[in-house]
């Protein structure tokens, strides 16, 4: 078994575009869930409207790339407003159900044959980010020793981590301001905040929009890194994986989602590599685990890991138990 390449692949994945996308999505969820206590189970929907907003604008309607980005952000804003108005006044589980349902509606709509002239059905849309890659200053591979990125990946890598850093900076400065204090207080007890004359609904809406904007950034990065949008990339599971990443790093901590996303992708790639080479060199007999089955083991472990995290370390693997963001109801 080639431990070296399994490890370097895992490292590349922990620093690469996948981790960036999940870090951004999880930063959004951290604003929603970690700081405000909003259970948004439809982050995939925010990512999808932004990605398709960009892709369809450029590939279908021939608009400039940057207009597409603006349309993507606008679509995410609209989605937050549409979702927030009915559900933010309600109990947490209603928001969860409404957001997961709308993410599913969006996925079905983007993949539908009827609208394939716009969104390309199950094939999606391709080649809409040339403007982005034209700006690429790298002309050759970027070498990190253990692993290297192609010039395009290096550009995605650079822009992505800059976005992650800026997002973290924004969250950090917001959360230490009185605005962030109101959000954290809403997470603790919204009636108390209401009794002190704060418009809780408006703050929840602002949090939903802000987190949705980070979701939009994640959607852009996912679309741009592969120059392609397809509906299956925005399935419900992506939201839950982002939650897993968030809980790994620790909800309600500025760097929690970033560290979580890196650990998540390191483990995913490491386990994927380990089991597939274990199955292919017959370390594990084929009867027990075929190649396809080997690729599933990591997802089984993600499920079990999410349960274990929530039960045993809800504060994340580094968090302080006293500060845990989630408890009670």
């Amino acid at each position: 078994m080639d431990w070296g390449s399994i490890f370097s692949n895992a490292m590349a994945s922990a620093l690469g575009p996948d981790a960036i996308v999940y870090a951004l999505a999880a930063i959004g969820l951290n604003v929603h869930f970690g700081y405000t206590g909003l259970l948004n189970f439809g982050q995939a929907g925010f990512m999808a409207v932004a990605a398709y907003g960009l892709a369809a604008s450029v590939a279908t309607w021939g608009l400039p790339f940057w207009v597409g980005i603006a349309i993507g952000f606008g679509a995410a804003l609209l989605l937050a407003l549409l979702l927030g108005v009915p559900t933010l006044r309600l109990r947490a589980d209603y928001l969860a159900i409404a957001t997961i349902a709308s993410a599913e509606i969006l996925r079905l709509v983007f993949g539908s044959v009827t609208l394939s002239d716009w969104f390309g059905g199950s094939n999606g849309r391709q080649q809409f980010a040339d403007t982005f890659y034209d700006l690429n200053p790298y002309s050759s591979r970027l070498d990190f020793g253990l692993f290297s990125f192609s010039a395009n990946d290096a550009w995605v890598f650079t822009v992505g981590w800059v976005l992650v850093a800026l997002s973290c900076l924004a969250v950090w400065s917001l959360m230490r301001s009185p605005w962030g204090r109101v959000l954290k207080s809403i997470r603790e007890d919204e009636d108390a905040v209401r009794s002190l004359g704060k418009n809780v609904f408006s703050y929840k809406m602002q949090a939903l929009i802000l987190g949705g904007m980070f979701g939009a950034l994640a959607g852009f990065m996912l679309a741009i890194k592969q120059q392609s949008v397809i509906p299956t990339d925005y399935a419900t599971d992506i939201t839950f994986f982002a939650y897993t990443a968030l809980l790994l790093g620790g909800a309600g901590r500025v760097l929690g989602p970033v560290i979580g996303a890196m650990i998540f992708w390191f483990l995913m790639t490491f386990l994927g590599g380990f089991f597939s080479s274990a199955a292919s060199i017959d370390l594990i007999p084929d009867v027990v685990m075929s190649d396809i089955q080997a690729s599933l083991v990591r997802f089984i472990l993600v499920g079990a890991g999410l349960m274990a995290l929530m039960i045993f370390r809800p504060q994340g693997i580094f968090g302080d138990r006293r500060e845990i963001a989630i408890d009670g109801r």
Partner: peptide, 8 residues
């Protein structure tokens, strides 16, 4: 400071 933009 409880207003979004000013809080920044």
């Amino acid at each position: 400071g409880e207003r979004f933009w000013l809080s920044l």
